[in-house]
Amino acid sequence: MLRIEHYSKTYPGGKKAVDDLTLHVRPGEIYGFIGHNGAGKTTTLRAVAGVMDFTEGTITIDGRDIKKDPVGAKRVTAFLPDNPDLYEFMKGIDYLNFIADLYDIPADRRTKDIGRFGDAFELTGSLGSPIGSYSHGMRQKLALISAFIRRPKLLILDEPFVGLDPSASHLMKGYLAELCQGGSAVFFSTHVLEVAEKLCHQIAIIKDGRLVKSGPTEQLVGDSSLEDVFLELEGDK
């Protein structure tokens, strides 16, 4: 579903944020991407989402090159940044319809999905209010709903658990699993190692822009915990 081949990103001034990263996410997989602050996680996720340009390598989503066919690649993708700022001048329902229009989602399907996810995240009643009046958690939920209604083949999430209450986190994990059962893939970054260990089929650990370890979660963790593996690789233990 997602193929990152020899991807590198150098910022103006010469700082190499990511160096020769290669990883593959297969359909039906939840892929966790972990690393310390400034390791290059967000830079990678933003490049995959087509939000940020990059210098070297190729990224293909469902066979579409993000540089050569960005519109095609984005059509099957949903991306959620770590702090999703949504148009405050819009009402929640207007934002969802705006996104649905951009992705050509038919009227009946969007109504059904907005109702389903809105009710599940207990946000339907507030969809008539301006986003400017939403709390941080409500915005996070709205952004998640806007991603789920797209039924993406690849869902890219940057720190999705930050700001969500425990029940919303639980719900989200369920929907991620459901999405993957339908053949989609999820690629997300997190600092919550317990969640990554329980949720992910595959995990990649990145340090100073370089991939230091990746593989199936059971293999990577072995008999210890992901926290132990992470700290060992980071050199903190």
């Binding site: 148009y87 819009m90 929640g92 329902i93 319809n97 705006f98 649905a100 229009d101 951009l102 050509d104 989602i105 038919p106 009227a107 009946d108 969007r110 109504t111 907005i114 109702g115 809105g118 339907t124 009643g125 507030s126 969809l127 008539g128 209010s129 301006p130 400017g132 009046s133 939403y134 709390s135 409500m138």
Partner: peptide, 25 residues
């Protein structure tokens, strides 16, 4: 202080094209 109301009732939504949505925004 602008708190979100909680009385919205979802009804059937209408779809429009990309360009119309972007212009409306």
């Amino acid at each position: 202080a602008r708190s979100a109301r909680n009385d919205y009732k979802l009804s059937a939504q209408a779809a429009s094209g990309q360009k119309k949505a972007l212009l409306a925004k």
